[in-house]
Design a protein around this nucleic acid. Sequence first.
DNA 1: ATCCGAACCTGACGGC
DNA 2: TGCCGTCAGGTTCGGA
Length: 278
Amino acid sequence: MNGKGTLFMPELPEVEVLKRDLIQKMPKPARIVRIQLLAPKLRTKLVLPKKIHAQSIAIKSITRRSKFLIFETTVGFLISHLGMSGRWRIDKYKKILKHDHVVLEWENGDFWVYNDPRRFGLFEYYKSISEVKWFKSLGPEPFSEQFHTTEMIKKIKSTQRSIKSVIMDSKVMVGVGNIYASEALFKAKINPFKLGSKVSAKKVTELLTVIQTTLQSAIEGGGSSIRDYVHSDGEKGNFQNQHLVYARDGEPCMDCGSKIKVKKIQGRSTFWCVKCQS
DNA sequence: ATCCGAACCTGACGGC
DNA sequence: TGCCGTCAGGTTCGGA
């Protein structure tokens, strides 16, 4: 452990767990009476059409696509992305804190607040999902029927980019962030720097399975820290760093004891075991 | 086609 | 104490 920010990582599993938690905590009837926009912008300008501002709206569902949360309302869609530092908290004290940007006020009096210090997140309105520009070139979800092994192998083997770059490319597949990229490649025993074209079909197949199981178990095990977060006194849950290589540079490999190394790939820190992932 | 660095930001941490 | 440099979960962009 290098002690660095391992408390909450908005990668796909965390967003999925957050989504499930929000669904469970959504008031019934699920009506929002007011949306406050507290700051001018996140990654994009914060604006809502009058029809959202002027009336109470019903929330029909909360879903997820890639790392985006989608609030489906009777008059359109609200899209939320957490960026690097975004959080949703259910605030029983109704107190506005530093870096709060959006407040959803529910009919029963509950407040859901979006807080984001770095402001890399998003909160946007769209009339229909097909208009969401961020969704236009996204690859398949790792757990979806569209996640075809043969097609993935084809894509990965046809590129001269490093395998890590490829699995993190949302046009190829969504959901693999910087942490889980290193983790999955370690589990599949593939060197992150290896070119996609040089990885055998068998290894790619293994990797795809590992990606699915890694994300899945992170979803299953991720609940506790997020739950506390959403409950949100803003303080830490009982999160344990369970990473095999991520942020463990200089420490021994869990399998062979060699020192874990770190090096950048496309500007992102990449952790791997030189011996196990040759 | 692909990679790199920069950009968007604040905050936490380590070193001096 | 405090200043300064470095780094951080994501994503898009321009330029080499």
